[in-house]
Design a protein around this nucleic acid. Structure first.
Lengths: 171, 171
DNA sequence: ATTTGACAGTTCAATTTTAGAACTATAGAA
DNA sequence: TTCTATAGTTCTAAAATTGAACTGTCAAAT
């Protein structure tokens, strides 16, 4: 399977993973949400190799998640800021953090707390139904093929349709 | 940076990424949520190599995200099912799908629709504040160091503390 | 005038991961 | 007895990542 085919799969999750599903991209985006904007900032915060960082930033710009804007002339310098498309990744970030807070903390407790400016309290993110407002859990959700579905209703990802494997036995 | 150090970083997101942040794991988990339970099922649905699949499943079991339970004796066979820890990944999955639905759909529209059994409607997932119930956005959230914070308040990930680089110029 | 440092990359060899394919093992069915 | 299904394991080639140095621009310091 080629990794870049993923973005064309008839599955929104596969497509999203095609954008952010590698070892470094999510970490880079985490930095973005923590207000890091510049190459050196990402590099020293993450310890990522400069080579990969340059590549990932380029990809995120190409995909419209980050915008590269000049912040000084002379030695032309740019910084990377989240587009709206990028900002919309926030629920993913919060969901990742929350799972880590719930299942991966050590005896010291949470590394970070989140305060909701509107209500002034420390909070946890909760995922609810847009229609009734109730919290969601996997078992209460039923999946239907949508207009963009392709293969069988259930098999909505990378159908490899197991070719009639020849099963060659040593003569 | 070693990839397996990630799980010990004082950052819940880094730790979560250490578990699910590689190219295949999220896809495998997606299959789990779509009720795939067996080795061959994962393999043919995803097209992942058997080698990697075995490795990833082993890792997910070791980390407590999946449980490996026998479903037949004779040729002993096992299947993989989500633990509660695994089921708790659901908000992450939904957030990924929703972002894809919002930003990566083609002209055909969404591949999948989600129905909330409780209210019977097709829905989108919305992330809200656990305290006031309002939808969350990045700019309304303020981050504070928690009890498990380690380095400077801001720098809560992979501090590489940029060693005083020698900058050797060719003689 | 020259050197040094900050910044944003690029280049390249060495290492690590992943892909692709075949092979092993067990037991029921043909 | 051979074939098939299932769940892996093993091996080599190809691709991605690491680590380290190198390039280029300009400002400030010496």
């Amino acid at each position: 399977m080629k990794w870049d085919e993923l973005e064309e799969e008839p599955c929104s999750m596969a497509r999203t993973i095609g954008v952010i599903g590698d070892r470094w991209t999510l970490l880079i985006l985490r930095e973005c949400f923590l207000r890091t904007r510049r190459f050196e900032g990402f590099q020293s915060a993450l310890g990522i190799t400069r080579h990969l960082l340059a590549e990932r930033l380029k990809k995120l710009v190409r995909l419209g998640v980050l915008r590269r804007i000049p912040y000084q002339e002379s030695p032309k310098r740019h910084e990377y800021i989240l587009t709206q498309k990028g900002l919309d990744l926030y629920p993913i970030m919060m969901a990742l953090v929350h799972w880590g807070d719930t299942h991966m903390v050590d005896e010291r407790g949470r590394p970070l707390l989140h305060e909701h400016r509107k209500c002034g309290k420390m909070f946890d993110p909760v995922m609810v139904c847009s229609e009734c407002g109730e919290p969601l859990s996997a078992k209460e959700v039923h999946v239907h093929p949508g207009p963009g579905a392709r293969p069988a209703p259930e098999r909505v990802l990378l159908d490899k349709k197991a070719k009639p494997k020849p099963r060659k036995k040593a003569a």
